[in-house]
């Protein structure tokens, strides 16, 4: 190494200015990164634009009496009865939650409060595998195994799909989601709280029920809200196991087949003539999509609020 610069004033401002080429290169890279980040914003804007612009045509031109109080969902005949879809969406979501809430939360409590680390290391990846199973597989399983082996024993028909069958399938699909968010919430509860409880002589179950669960309640609520949003948007399980084709008469019984919002969209799009139908068929797709989008967005925003609350608490 050479001796350090001994000359006073030998250093000029220009020497420290950095090479303009490097400065330009850095700025360019920074802009490229910014553009990458902007893609998500553009995508969001396009989703909203696409939904609103097409749904607007529907809302402008549709005979509104056909969207409320008609006998069912017959989009190709210009009858767009929204209650049909909403009732079916409610049923499948409700049934899904009856399945997913106890299973998901129970699994989460066991993993977080009871399982030994070695067991956890095996069980968690298995739950993650369940989370990775595509919904078409659950649709197949619901229709061909759950319907004859489970639904047939609780009053349903085993030979075809129904809201009940689809709901159970959707429920299984959302178990890992409920489990993972609940477990995160319980993991956020400080160890000191548990130790305080255990130190006072409380047993594991008591600590869990009276200390951990109340402390994690926002996260548990969030897990259910996010799961409801997921269930509302689930398409393929209901499309395959929901027991309805592309048109259906309104029904209030979960033992019947029907169409939820997303499965009605998929049905519309999968016909032989695909979405290019008569009149407002194409636009009705975007209208239903818009309703679904707003519903799930609202739920996600509420769920997000709950998750942040957990994080702020501890």
């Amino acid at each position: 190494m050479e001796t350090p610069d001994p000359v006073p004033g030998a250093l000029s401002l220009a020497a420290l200015a950095g090479s303009p080429r490097r400065v330009r290169r850095e700025r360019l890279i920074s802009r490229v990164m910014f553009c990458a980040a902007l893609v998500s914003v553009v995508v969001s804007a396009l989703i909203i634009y696409a939904l609103f612009s097409e749904a607007w045509i529907f809302m402008r031109d549709v005979d509104w009496s056909s969207t409320w109080g008609e006998l069912g969902w017959f989009p190709r005949r210009g009858i767009y009865d929204m209650p049909t879809l909403l009732v079916a969406s409610l049923w499948t979501t409700l049934i899904a939650m009856i399945v997913a809430a106890p299973l998901g939360m129970g699994a989460a409590i066991y993993l977080s409060e009871y399982a030994r680390p070695t067991h956890r290391a095996i069980l968690k990846p298995i739950l993650e595998i369940l989370a990775g199973i595509p919904s078409v597989v659950l649709g197949f399983f619901a229709l061909l195994w759950l319907a004859p082996n489970v639904v047939a024993h609780i009053g349903g028909e085993g030979g075809r799909g129904s809201m009940l069958t689809a709901g159970i399938g959707v429920g299984i699909l959302t178990v890992p989601l409920v489990a993972s968010i609940s477990e995160d919430a319980m993991a956020a509860v400080p160890k000191s709280l548990r130790e305080a409880s255990a130190g006072l002589g409380a047993r594991n179950a008591v600590t869990t029920l009276r200390v951990v669960l109340p402390a994690a309640v926002s996260g548990l609520v969030a897990s259910l809200i996010v799961a409801v949003s997921r269930a509302l948007g689930e398409t393929m399980v209901v499309f395959m196991a929901g027991g309805a084709a592309d048109a259906v008469i309104r029904t209030y019984s979960p033992y019947d087949g029907s169409l939820t919002m997303p499965s009605a969209m998929a049905s519309l799009a999968s016909g032989t003539d695909q979405v290019v139908g008569e009149g407002l068929t194409f636009q009705s797709l975007f209208f239903v999509g818009l309703v679904l989008f707003l519903l799930t967005l609202g739920l996600n925003l509420i769920g997000d609020r709950f998750v942040t609350r957990v994080r702020e608490q501890y």
């Binding site: 989703i47 996010v226 689930e234 769920g303």
Partner: peptide, 18 residues
């Protein structure tokens, strides 16, 4: 975060549109 929660079928609409 909100995009992550949009139902996949809605992305289908976006694809159809775009």
């Amino acid at each position: 975060r909100n995009l992550a929660g949009v139902p996949s079928v809605v992305y289908g609409l976006l694809g159809l549109f775009l």
